[in-house]
Design a protein around this nucleic acid. Structure first.
Lengths: 330, 330
DNA sequence: CTGTTAGCGCTTTCAT
DNA sequence: ATGAAAGCGCTAACAG
């Protein structure tokens, strides 16, 4: 049936072309000048025999695998598939591959996964760390072995990162809610150990203190799901019944808030916004902050793929995001 | 700063332990019997020096990488992140890794991606092919080089697969719609070149012909998004205005149909169902077919990881799915 | 510009 | 049961 399908080696190509192994290698990779005539002969033999270089042998020799390890906390959170897709495309367009690990929001799994990837000699590690605190040690330790780039979630400024500015969009959301007549705004975060959620919370607190100096800071945190959003909304509105605008750290939470509002507070005109501009936000006409995923990915891969690693090690990029206003904040 | 972080090799461990390289290798991998005393010495030296075997060197020698290539059509479709997550967890629990490729629904990209993965010497290729026709040639060609397992989408019965039964759930949906009083059912598919969509369509046609022999087959196809779902619903309902139940090949489409019904046909009691039981289905109380993603993943990884590849090559698995009834079909 | 040779790190004969 | 040595496929010194 599926007979041991012998892979052609460079040695065979060399023999077939009547050239030395190294000439074939140089002709095919272009690493050194080779007579055009011989290049053709090498290429012809290669394609005739169906030769494709074995990257394992190459990696052992060059000490580069052309592979990045990508560590994400949870593919169930729709932001991450979008990020993975963008990263994978950016990587593949440069001939690079991605080993993926989903840590299920568990810092221990995260550290273990990073070590597995290091064993596979990835050229760099792209990580969205799970936990502001618990992820730190493993991340720092990994960074002593391989270039590490924090993507989206930043937990240590000493390690390279590509992140999104959270301050401007949060401020824009607050301004919009105020402009449409709201005065009692609140924030619902995910787990506060999640870097981006924490940043959004801080940005909210700051924007509010600028507009309502001395006013109460209405803020609760929960999980990352519509259910926990509903629960958080309930807590929030019983604690601060005057609330008329809610900035949520995530679309999933915002959806839960919308549900709660529509079910229990049908008459109230409460503004709601989310983050990530997921499909659900579009369908439910939820105002949300669109993440520049493509840009994030391009920057990350460009940095990680750069020939001399000092570039990666110097990367500290912050990109802007854009608020998409919809009916939920009218 | 980040000084060339020398990785410890097995040679250094051997020197430190006062043993030969081969003894250390055998002690650490357990590939052959070694005196317990020496095993301890090897292990101690290894952990003392922080040794971790280089999988690149190992792979070159053993001709196995412990890595699978995973090729999915589109991570934007929420079914696939769930599948990727389940596969990655199942793989990692066995010490195996996954190289991911998202083909963006393009068969040519798919073939190219498969070749890239083959160059990386993956032990097997797990593929959800894009296109019933256009993916076939590349898939068959890859299968001559490496074990290939079709996941979820099956386009060639001659190649191993792990799939989900589509017939039973579609039949159950049709029966339910009939039981709640509907008589004029219709189907909306994704692109008919998508294997699962096609199977669902066929199952629908069959279920209908059993109940309404000689009746019209109301069926249209479109894309895989709420927008195309809306458009398809419009087409469908203008062509067959009597329609009172719609089985959709996908939750995203179903959401579009719901939108169209709620916006334009507010009074009509039209049943709607989707596939994949995504978060959106839960939020919108949409009846949907929950895919046994975990089971699919476990079967796939178990087959792919099996030491002798004849097991993989013999894999033809079909697992059952479950309809989750919600308000949209009341 | 081309060829010969060494060697990346590991496992596995092959001797002992 | 252990060790010495070969070699997986490739690239890169080093001669020529």
């Amino acid at each position: 049936m599926d007979q041991a399908p012998h892979r052609v080696t460079i040695r065979e190509v060399a023999a077939h072309a009547g050239l030395s192994i190294s000439t074939v290698s140089r002709a095919l990779t272009g690493s050194r000048a080779v007579l055009p005539e011989l290049v053709r002969r090498a290429q012809d033999s290669a394609s005739e025999l169906g030769y494709r270089a074995d990257t394992v042998g190459r990696s052992l020799r060059t000490q580069r695998t052309g592979t990045f390890g990508l560590v994400v906390p949870d593919l169930t959170n729709p932001f991450f598939p979008a990020l993975v897709q963008a990263l994978e495309h950016a990587a593949r367009s440069r001939g690079l591959s991605i080993l993926i690990a989903d840590t299920g929001n568990d810092p221990e799994v995260e550290t273990a996964a990073m070590n597995t990837l290091l064993d596979r000699r990835v050229d760099a590690l792209l990580v969205s760390p799970v936990d502001l605190e618990a992820s730190r040690e493993g991340l720092i330790s990994a960074a002593t072995t391989v270039p590490v780039l924090q993507i989206d979630r930043v937990i240590d400024e000493g390690i390279p990162f590509v992140r999104v500015d959270q301050e401007a969009p949060v401020k824009a959301l607050v301004e919009r809610m105020i402009a449409t007549g709201r005065r009692h705004l609140a924030f619902i975060g995910q787990d506060p150990r999640i870097a981006t959620s924490r940043e959004r919370e801080v940005a909210f607190a700051q924007a509010m203190s600028e507009r309502f100096a001395g006013g109460p800071l209405r803020s609760v945190t929960g999980g990352t799901s519509p259910q926990s959003g509903r629960a958080a909304a309930e807590t929030l509105l019983s604690r601060w019944p005057e609330t008329d605008g809610v900035v949520c750290a995530n679309d999933l939470i915002a959806v839960g808030v919308l549900e709660h509002v529509r079910a229990r507070l049908a008459g109230r005109r409460i503004a709601v916004s989310g983050f990530d501009d997921t499909l659900m936000a579009q369908v439910l006409e939820l105002t949300s902050v669109r993440q520049p995923v493509q840009q994030l990915a391009d920057l990350a891969i460009a940095a990680a793929a750069h020939p001399d690693r000092s570039t990666l090690l110097a990367t500290r990029a912050v990109v802007a995001s854009e608020v998409v206003f919809r009916r939920s904040t009218d």
